[in-house]
Design a binder for these strands. Structure first.
Lengths: 229, 229
DNA sequence: TTTGAAAAGTGTGAAATAGACACTTATAAA
DNA sequence: TTTATAAGTGTCTATTTCACACTTTTCAAA
């Protein structure tokens, strides 16, 4: 029946998070080594169960805060996984989110008790359950989103060089980009502020630092602008 | 805790379907008038609850089959809605799908008992719960998907005219397209077969009927082709 | 039988965007 | 002062997108 609320059909709803980070070279994901059953000792995504008093976004934020200590993290729900035996111990449905965090600024907040570790996408270990599938799906969504919304900046420090930004996009899109074409594309979007400050780490000449100009971006969006890389 | 399977956190998981159809003029959605509580007499999407022995895709197919009698319908999951009070009677989480069906070929299969009715997107009545939000979300996803995958054909009869195809895209994308540019774009994709047959309904001259060439499309995809409108 | 009405069918040129490509500059360290 | 290293910068070509209007076919009405 379509209209019956049936107690016996209730299920456990998990929330699993793919946490993306960027170390100025490769796109990474944060994984934990489970010290609890099932699949103790194996690598997995972080997750938790939805509680009665919260919605899914809140559950994802809570799970993330628990592991990383971070509030105000970019989170996007992308798919709900429901194969009957995806968790062999008990039927659970998993709503998956991905998060974007800035490794550089926040690496220290990681909660030690989870033995969490960053892995390059292509060097990550095999994960439990259907978590590998979730990661694949998350990358697809991230690729799409990052090329149509300015979410890449979530993965960078507040001040960044053009080279960092280019490395980030190359890493997300898994492709090489031409430096001059990339820079003129970015400049034509006209949503960065070039600071007077230079980063002197990576070269003798030094390279200008930039900030994303959120106010300008919002203003332009309200005038019909769409971000596209 | 992250690892506790806790009976009291179990929830009801609903599946709701936005059913899109196309009547050669406007994009439509199929709604039902509820003859059961809660919200009896109001318009809503069709839906049902996930059962223990099925995954979400199967649940969506089942719900759809129950209403329309159709198997093998294009279905895509797009978002999971979880606001605590979205259903005031009992906490339910809803995983939403949209379906594409060909009104012309299948209007008769509709299960009478649901008093289902087709509505133009812009003339649909207010729906119960968060169903209006679901419809908005579904349209966004449909727009994106239809411009990157050849799913539009699911909404058309097997044989269709270029005019119908153009009307369909105009309706999905909610925009006017230039006839010549549209046709040359479609022709450049090279995935339609023009039949010798003409449709004589819409004009004295008659207009050629076309079919989507699925084999050719699949072949081209395997060679790196991507569909883009 | 001729004429008119209505939609189908068809191509070109201009503008904008994407993509390939290489040399100069600034600076710190040797 | 020399050298090594990454930063910074512009032009030309190819491709794609967009704007735009007349001819053809056929049925129905005069």
């Amino acid at each position: 029946m379509l209209n019956n609320y049936n107690e016996k059909d209730k299920v456990l709803l998990a929330v699993d998070c793919i946490i993306f980070g960027f170390d100025n070279d490769r796109l990474k994901i944060l994984l934990i080594k489970r010290d609890f059953e099932p699949e103790k000792g194996k690598w997995s995504l972080i997750g938790g169960f939805l509680k009665q008093e919260e919605n899914l976004d809140d559950a994802a934020s809570r799970v993330l805060k628990h592991l990383t200590g971070l509030d105000d993290v970019y989170l996007e729900q992308f798919y709900t996984f429901s194969e009957i035996d995806r968790d062999p111990q008990e039927r659970t449905i998993s709503v998956s989110y991905y998060a974007l965090i800035n490794i550089e600024d926040h690496n220290n907040e990681l909660n030690e008790q989870f033995s969490a570790q960053w892995f390059s996408i292509d060097k990550a270990p095999k994960l439990i359950f259907d978590h590998d599938q979730m990661v694949k799906h998350a990358i697809r969504r991230l690729r799409y989103r990052a090329s149509t919304k300015p979410i890449g900046f979530e993965l960078l420090p507040e001040k960044f060089t053009m080279k960092q930004l280019q490395n980030l996009y190359e890493s997300i899109l898994d492709t090489k980009l031409d430096k001059r074409n990339f820079i003129s594309k970015i400049n034509s979007l006209d949503v960065l502020i070039r600071l007077d400050e230079k980063d002197m780490e990576s070269s003798r000449k030094g390279s200008y630092l930039h900030k994303f100009d959120k106010e300008k971006y919002d203003q332009k969006v309200s005038e019909g602008f769409t971000f596209k890389i």
